[in-house]
């Protein structure tokens, strides 16, 4: 177990370094961040000033060295300052977390509340009408482009019917619940199809197992068999997948936050990309990479905890 943990931790660190190095190299190859400040040779911008600015931002060194300087600073807890308004990267990232978390958690609730019951029904009534509903639901869920769905929902509920606001988060955070509905449905829609499929296949497998047959043979009520014996065992897979789905919400909300003008990390990230604000960009990449790695790690561990038959060598 210790060896397994050690290997996973080393591997996780390697992944984070690799991901950040990749984005670092790519963003440098793509363009000179100094252009965000001022064009060299522009009015009132002397070559001396340019040189001083380069040194201040550390852009005078080779790219590889720049990366290791950044890595060293991060190791000491210094994430740098944004180029645009010289705010601390850590503050900019962390102050966007609550909004993104708000959206992701509501989307998660919607996804599980729709996906899991339909999955169970589809498995119980295999080949029946619920199974068809589930199948069509899954096809739609995986094929609907989220940005299109979002715009259609805005058109229907905000523009045409005027029931819900078309964007932003409102001023009162969680209390402004009307603002979160449309973006959360858009974000949770695809995931609910994944939950449905996972629940359905897990339920089918378990309903086919020996202990269910025994319970039925003993004359246990059908409802008890389904909900107490089968459902609780079938939940393992969808629940562990939740870690991955939740992180993909946090990351995948880039598009949804753009559509609904939701003031979260995704929208900030797009701004950072458009400005080539590399310290901020690197902050986000680091954050997402850590999140992804942690989620995968958690899933691996959770499998072992929930299902003791899984052993780590």
């Amino acid at each position: 177990m210790i060896r397994f943990l050690l290997r996973r931790v080393i591997f996780a660190l390697l992944t984070i370094v690799f991901a950040t190095a990749l984005v670092f190299a790519l963003s440098r190859l793509a363009g000179d961040p100094l252009l965000l400040y001022a064009k060299p040779g522009g009015y009132g911008f002397t070559p001396e000033q340019e040189q001083a600015l380069r040194e201040k931002l550390g852009l005078d060194k080779p790219v590889i060295l720049q990366y290791f300087v950044w890595l060293g600073l991060v190791g000491r807890g210094d994430f740098g300052k944004t180029i645009l308004d010289e705010k601390s990267v850590l503050t900019v990232v962390t102050e966007k977390i609550p909004a993104s978390l708000h959206l992701a958690s509501i989307a998660w609730i919607i996804a599980t509340a729709i996906g899991i019951p339909i999955g169970v029904l589809a498995a119980i009534k295999r080949g029946g009408s619920w199974d068809y509903v589930a199948r069509i639901f899954a096809l739609f869920g995986q094929a609907l482009p989220s940005f299109w769905l979002g715009l259609l929902l805005i058109f229907l509920f905000a523009v045409d019917l005027g029931w819900l606001p078309a964007g932003t988060r409102g001023d009162k955070g969680w209390a402004d619940w009307r603002y979160v509905i449309l973006p959360a449905i858009t974000l949770g829609w695809g995931a609910s199809a994944s939950y449905m499929r996972l629940t359905r296949s897990a339920m089918l497998e378990i309903l086919d197992s020996e202990f269910i047959k025994l319970a039925r043979a003993k004359g246990v009520q059908s409802r008890t068999v389904v909900w107490k014996h089968a459902f609780r065992n079938a939940l393992i897979q969808p629940l562990t997948a939740s870690a991955i789905i939740l992180t993909s919400f946090l990351g995948g909300s880039i598009i949804i936050e753009t559509i609904f003008a939701w003031p979260g990390m995704g929208r900030q990230l797009i701004t950072a990309v458009n400005n080539n604000d590399f310290p901020l960009l690197m902050g986000f990449v680091l954050f997402y990479a850590v999140l992804y790695v942690l989620a995968n790690f958690f899933v691996d561990l959770a499998y072992g905890v929930i299902d003791p038959r899984i052993r780590y060598e």
């Binding site: 992944t15 690799f18 990749l22 984005v23 990230l269």
Partner: peptide, 18 residues
């Protein structure tokens, strides 16, 4: 495994934008 834990949409955004 490593490749899959890279937030790819980010990489694509950075590359394609610049």
């Amino acid at each position: 495994d490593m490749w899959r834990s890279i937030p790819f949409i980010l990489v694509a955004l950075v590359v394609a934008a610049f």
